[in-house]
Write a protein that binds this DNA or RNA. Structure first.
Lengths: 339, 339
DNA sequence: CTGAAAGCGCTTACAG
DNA sequence: CTGAAAGCGCTTACAG
């Protein structure tokens, strides 16, 4: 059992108030009282009880980051950025994973359960939408990440998926490709990302006068390597396979790359590839991956800042913050230069 | 402000005790009392205060997983496994990242700070060793992961690094390779992993009568792709480059692979490659990666089980649990079969 | 500069 | 089956 404040006070022959003053480094403590208390503190190896302190103060110093999947590199990299930003503000981040499961998302965000020890939440939903989030019983501030459209009056940071997908597709068009496929469309109403990127892809094709061919738009259930590999196999089985593919994230692109190379085809000579996310894997694949790079540091910075504002009592209208992105051109569209 | 138990009690015209009984689903509540209370609960949107509950109960239902780096795929994949195992036991896992920084490791594990709201800790140290962990002031149970040797009387799960490295190296020897390099040695006293794997590598070479060539053993600061790429470049600059490389993790191997391919060399024809960890990236690279596969599910299962035992008051001697592993042979040593 | 005491929001023996 | 009350370990206005 760790020592309590009262035990320290008894040992030092002072009141708990004075011990608390010393523990919290308050200035108005007489030097020799401080020394006496400090000795008792050391002897008993006192550690403040964080739970009691939180109950009393009304703040834990903890914020939760709730993400679909920690082992998706984009989220892992984003997590690193959020942890750094929060640490700079004196907050500790704890991370939780939902697998995009609506039940788990609801449980974590509605905080019915014991997860409710956090001062605030940064939440990237996959399944939950406007309706679910509208009347949370909790007053814990939430900042939303990602494309799930929520009009429910919560701060929200997202990349312009349509614009980014257009940019990626235009790049392939500019390369002179004519049969440009897309991997990652999602028919599921609750998954917005795929739909929005398909929209941008189609916009770009139409603007360039390139025909939109439905069979070149491949839906996937998830955005994992395996999905990309399978979708690419389907595309290669087409009578007239594509000469370029826009994959809705880098994991899909890496899966597609594996399939292409395993058939003895070349990237980008036979098929050019563009991904999305700029995860580290894509910088080290051969060929390296041309991709859309969302500014993860900026996303993290905004998310933490918005949350801190709310914690400070900011009552202003919910913010809709667009995150910057750009196109990073690498070997999967320009070719490998062996040196 | 969320409603409190007392407010619900007043509204329902009962005592807090009765409300608590309803909230916690205790059976001995009269049906109509229950209904009355339930109505008040619903009307006020009552959510129990998890902090107060934890203070009172002495348990939060939260366990912390403290890892060096979340964006290293091995740890991300391990995290998934731990979350699954803990969830099965009714615990929620929160994850924290130390970057192997001794200051952060100490802060989190010694729980000087507000992180101290967890019932238990699963900790993979990088910098902290025996001495540091010996006299923790806290009584929160800890289970250690990884190779950092700790005799301090804590439960500990680790893979046999020496044995696994021998297995990997023997595989390369069996392929007939003669100049087998190693990437990932660590001279730093506090980093055990590299040293142990080098030992296994050397054991295997000696047992096979292959000369140990110091210049073929490359130290790296971290176990990241960039380190592997740089170390491989050094090896290729040697007058007599290796014909095989054992990389101490898959990330190093993926970096090395990138360097090899970018020089126009072939894997495995010119240089065979073996990694360690079996991360998903290595299953989708071209060529796919031969690797040592630690049983991550088993590690997670043991870690959670050991922790639960301690939480249940288990006072037995600290356990040293070896984790299973095996060699997964893929294209980076056997060659790519295009189909 | 320090003490005695209230209270954060729960849970739970103790009565009845 | 339900109420009045103590207490988990802190922090902090209120006195002095």
């Amino acid at each position: 059992m760790p020592a309590t404040l009262r035990e320290v006070a008894e040992r030092a022959g002072v009141s708990v108030r004075t011990v608390s003053n010393v523990v919290n480094d308050f200035p108005q403590v007489a030097p020799d009282t401080r020394a006496k208390v400090q000795r008792a503190l050391d002897e008993l190896g006192y550690q403040p009880n964080a739970v009691a302190r939180t109950l009393r103060r009304g703040r834990s110093g903890l914020i939760a980051l709730v993400l679909p999947e920690l082992d998706v590199p984009y989220f892992a990299e984003l997590t690193r950025a959020v942890i750094e930003q929060a640490a700079a503000a004196g907050y500790t981040v704890v991370v939780d994973q939902t697998d995009g499961d609506p039940v788990r998302e609801r449980e974590l965000v509605m905080r019915g359960s014991r997860a409710a020890m956090f001062d605030g939440l940064i939440f990237n939903p996959l399944a939950l939408g406007d309706a679910d989030l509208r009347d949370r019983p909790s007053s814990t501030p939430v900042v939303l990440l990602g494309e799930r459209v929520v009009q429910g009056g919560l701060d929200h940071i997202m990349v312009d998926n349509v614009g980014a997908a257009e940019l990626a597709t235009r790049h392939l068009i500019a390369l002179g490709r004519q049969r440009i496929a897309a991997i990652g469309d999602q028919s599921d109403e609750s998954r917005q990302t795929g739909r929005l990127r398909t929209q941008g892809y189609q916009n770009a094709l139409r603007a360039a006068g390139v025909e939109v061919v439905p069979e070149l738009i491949r839906p996937t259930e998830f955005f994992h390597r395996a999905d990309g590999a399978a979708a690419m196999a389907d595309l290669l089985a087409l009578p007239d396979p594509p000469d370029a593919v826009f994959c809705y994230n880098d994991l899909l692109a890496l899966g597609a790359l594996r399939t292409i190379l395993s058939r003895g085809l070349r990237v980008p000579e036979d098929i050019a590839l563009v991904g999305f996310d700029d995860i580290e894997d894509g910088r080290y694949s051969t060929p390296s991956l041309t991709t859309i790079r969302p500014d993860k540091t900026q996303i993290a910075k905004h998310a933490v800042q918005l949350l801190l504002n709310r914690l400070d009592g900011d009552q202003s209208a919910p913010a809709e913050v667009p995150a910057d992105y750009d196109l990073v051109v690498r070997e999967s569209t320009t070719g490998i230069s062996t040196y």
